[in-house]
Design a protein around this nucleic acid. Structure first.
Length: 465
RNA sequence: GGCGCCAUAGCCAAGUGGCUAAGGCACGGGCCUGCAAAGCCCUGAUCCCCGGUUCGAAUCCGGGUGGCGCCUCCA
């Protein structure tokens, strides 16, 4: 397996810290709003990584946190009058529901910042003891960047001429210093008791502390194998996490750093501030989760993805072909593993998740399978092999696992379905009597309803357009 | 300003020095079909521009042009 490492800026061979075990931590969402397509893309990217590693036989421990203390959450509390818990619980559930619709495997551990405070206290205390942190008169505790000789080596994105944009520069020693602990600001703030007084943790400390608490190796050079997140998190977030962990524990945080590319809208980054963000929930009203997943999946995780409905529809048609094949082998249950195909599909995924090549393998498989079925429509062995391969595709890529008929009929209510079946029956009778005029009239009527017919050797089947 | 990414057919998108530059969508032609649909077959690119290295470059180097991201909360 090779992986593109953001730190080294090149593709390198992946070797876990400990033989067949892989520990992954991915930065999860700050739960103050619904998940947008960017969250979906990040989740899908690392879901693919996880599935690939698992298919290769690694035992993966996958952790994704919820940031449930943050300025934005506090803002939301103030604007809605709701409690922290009400807000974060609501958005955590909403996030999980969205991710489920996208067929993202749940993380093995889903830590929350609010449940990991002790670990943060420990880390902050260690940094203070070792002289890497200092306290301001207002009670805030900052990380002293100048004390860390390694600072900025991870991302190489620091600025020579001061962090102009950074806030609170007057009181900090160095503009690049970042908050480990924010002292309580009184009314309207969210405050926790701590050895450093009432307050709340800074953003960066959360991840370092949760990694340490839940999955860190203690006796190795690196605490975990892979740390992932969106491309924007590399600096300062990941740089700061690395600094905290390295200074406190003398271990690097992660052996490999992976960052997924953005979802753009009209060539621009999708973001709240640009007002062009697109919620997963809203997208799901228009397209099934699996279709959305397949679309977001089909661009390599590192590259930016320019969201367009046109491309999504083109991508859906590609997935449709897999499901039409699945319809042809419907009701076949017995498995017949095709090792050769599995290897062929896994091969490109081993190469830094080369999804384009993997999907080309799927396309080729669909084409060949259709051809062989045309030649040998009753070959049971063949059908068993095909269904097994589709199952493997689903296992590795998370698509193709739905019922083949339901896939094409999603969003059609029961009553309509009955009506469709009746019309098809009428048309079949007309066809039998060679009354093609009537048959075509019925077909047109269905077409008006958005229903396409296919006459197959096993009878007429229908699909929603 | 600092750091970095990208530019391949109408669209999406692989390819990182060497047989005829993957695959999908769209378009057109064919087989199949009562006609369709589906499926299968066929059809399309001198790889942004200029220069260099090399026997040989989409692929490496230099210089342009254009687009984007991070540096401030952000997946």
């Amino acid at each position: 397996m090779t992986i593109y490492d953001s730190h080294l800026k090149k593709k390198i061979e992946f070797k876990p810290i400990k033989d067949k075990e892989v520990r992954i931590y991915v930065c999860g969402p700050t739960v103050y709003d619904d998940a947008h397509l960017g969250h979906a893309r990040s989740s899908i990217s690392f879901d693919l990584l996880r599935r690939t590693l698992e298919a290769l036989g690694y035992k993966v421990t996958f952790v994704k946190n919820f940031t449930d203390i943050d300025d934005k959450i506090i803002n939301k509390m103030n604007s809605t009058g709701k409690s922290l818990k009400e807000i974060t619980e609501h958005y955590i559930n909403s996030y999980l529901a969205d991710m489920e619709a996208l067929n993202i495997k749940r993380a093995d551990i889903e830590p929350k910042a609010t449940e990991s405070l002790e670990a943060m206290f420990e880390l902050i205390q260690k940094l203070i003891d070792k002289g890497y942190a200092y306290k301001l008169s207002n009670g805030d505790i900052y990380f002293d960047v100048s004390k860390d000789k390694e600072y900025c080596k991870l991302s190489n994105k620091c600025q020579e001429d001061e962090g102009i944009h950074r806030i609170d520069t007057e009181s900090k020693k160095n503009p690049a210093d970042f908050a480990l602990w924010k002292a309580c600001k009184g009314e309207g703030d969210v405050c926790f008791d701590s050895p450093f007084g009432k307050g709340r943790p800074g953003w960066h400390i959360e991840c370092s502390a949760m990694i340490k608490k839940y999955i860190a190796y203690t006796d190795t050079k690196y605490q975990i194998d892979i740390h992932g997140g969106g491309a924007d998190l590399f600096f300062p977030h990941h740089e700061n996490e690395e600094a905290q962990t390295f200074c406190a524990y003398n271990q690097h945080l992660a052996k490999y750093w992976m960052h997924n590319g953005f979802v753009n809208i009209n060539g621009e980054k999708m973001s709240k501030s640009l007002g062009n963000s697109f919620f997963v929930k809203d997208a799901l009203k228009h397209y099934p989760g699996e279709v959305l997943r397949f679309y977001l999946l089909s661009t390599h995780y590192k590259a930016p993805l320019n969201f367009s409905e046109e491309d999504l529809i083109a991508s859906k048609k590609r997935l449709d072909k897999l499901y039409r094949l699945k319809k042809r082998v419907y009701a076949i249950n017995k498995k017949q593993q095709d090792k050769e195909f599995e290897k062929k599909l896994l091969e490109p995924m081993k190469d830094n998740l080369n999804i384009s090549k993997a999907l080309a393998v799927v396309d080729e498989f669909v084409k060949n399978a259709n051809e062989e079925l045309d030649k040998n429509p009753k070959d049971k062995n063949l059908k068993q092999k095909i269904i097994s391969n589709i199952e493997f595709i689903n296992k590795l890529l998370g698509v193709g696992g739905s019922d083949a008929y339901k896939y094409f009929q999603e969003g059609i209510d029961k009553e309509t379905k009955i009506k469709i079946e009746e019309l098809i029956k009428k048309r079949d009778e007309a066809k039998k009597e060679k009354n093609y005029e009537l048959a075509d009239k019925i077909r047109n009527e269905l077409k008006q309803m958005g229903i396409m017919l296919q006459d197959t050797p096993n009878g007429t089947v229908w699909e929603k357009v």
